[in-house]
């Protein structure tokens, strides 16, 4: 599995309240959530994001509430992958559980700017900044998590495993 797209670059501690503000949580319809994704820190995001695009952020991305609406809004926006220095843990597991690939890679974060075109290979964990012609290595997922993401999320994975 590979992803390629232009990047949106954010800083530390992007919390789930700005990824999808609580005032929009009176719905769980993915497309409605995507329409408001990131709007409290980046009004243009939902207008300009295209299928395949990649979010790159600094530390503790997705901190705050457990709302799965946050990775759902990001995935529904068309984002193919999120790269960060570190992720908050509930966001991390929610993303894996719904099949949104996310990678931790501080070196990549040091060398990717807003708008750079980036390619990611999930099997090997290789991240290429095509604009700057640089390559970085992220930790690939452990097999259990690769299985989850390949199955398209926890529900599909658990059903495949039969009675656990």
């Amino acid at each position: 599995m590979k992803a390629k797209g232009k990047t949106y670059r954010y800083k530390d501690n992007v919390d789930t309240d700005v990824i999808i503000p609580a005032r929009y949580l009176n719905t769980s319809v993915a497309s409605e959530l995507a329409a408001h994704c990131m709007e409290d820190i980046d009004l243009d995001f939902s207008k300009t994001v295209e299928k395949g695009d990649i979010i790159v952020a600094d530390k503790n991305f997705g901190c705050g509430s457990s709302r799965e609406h946050a990775p759902i809004a990001i995935k529904e926006s068309g984002v193919s992958c999120v790269i960060a220095r570190t992720f908050a843990r509930i966001f991390y597991r929610n993303s894996i559980n719904i099949g949104l690939p996310i990678l931790e890679c501080p070196e990549a974060c040091d060398n990717i700017e807003q708008g750079d075109v980036v390619e990611v290979d999930f099997e090997t964990g290789k991240i290429k900044n095509l604009t700057k012609n640089k390559e970085f290595q992220a930790e690939p997922f452990p097999p259990f998590m690769q299985g989850l993401i390949e199955s398209g999320g926890l529900a599909a994975y658990m059903s495949k495993q039969g009675d656990m």
């Binding site: 457990s66 709302r67 509930i90 929610n94 559980n97 719904i98 999320g153 658990m158």
Partner: peptide, 16 residues
């Protein structure tokens, strides 16, 4: 510990 809705669904279905 806090989890997301998919974990909750899995928990309700399987107890795991």
């Amino acid at each position: 510990t806090g989890v997301g809705s998919t974990d909750m669904a899995c928990g309700m279905a399987t107890g795991k």
